[in-house]
Amino acid sequence: MSKRPLALSRLVLDILKPHIPDLIDFCRELSSIKGVKKVSGVVMEVDVETDTVKITVEGKDIDFEEIEERVKTMGAAIHSVDEVVFEE
């Protein structure tokens, strides 16, 4: 009997974003994605035009492609995926 595939439940992303949208609007936008139950963000570095933020997304069966797309729509870029958790 084949094992049921695990689903993405936690992601920690290192993101470079413009100052606007601010961190609240940014996290709110990600929180509206299907399957996402919790979004938290921490500003790591502030530059003249940009912020480097660490975003943690938690939920059940998170759609990573959708997260990538929304991040892009907000003018930001994922620099690295620092932590991933798959679970039942």
Binding site: P18, P21, D47, E49, M74, G75, A77
Partner: peptide
């Protein structure tokens, strides 16, 4: 343009533009 230069990406189609 200033933001694009800082981000090193094109912002076409984003909420900002």
């Amino acid at each position: 343009k200033e933001i694009e230069e800082a981000m090193l990406v094109k912002l076409d189609g984003t909420v900002i533009v």
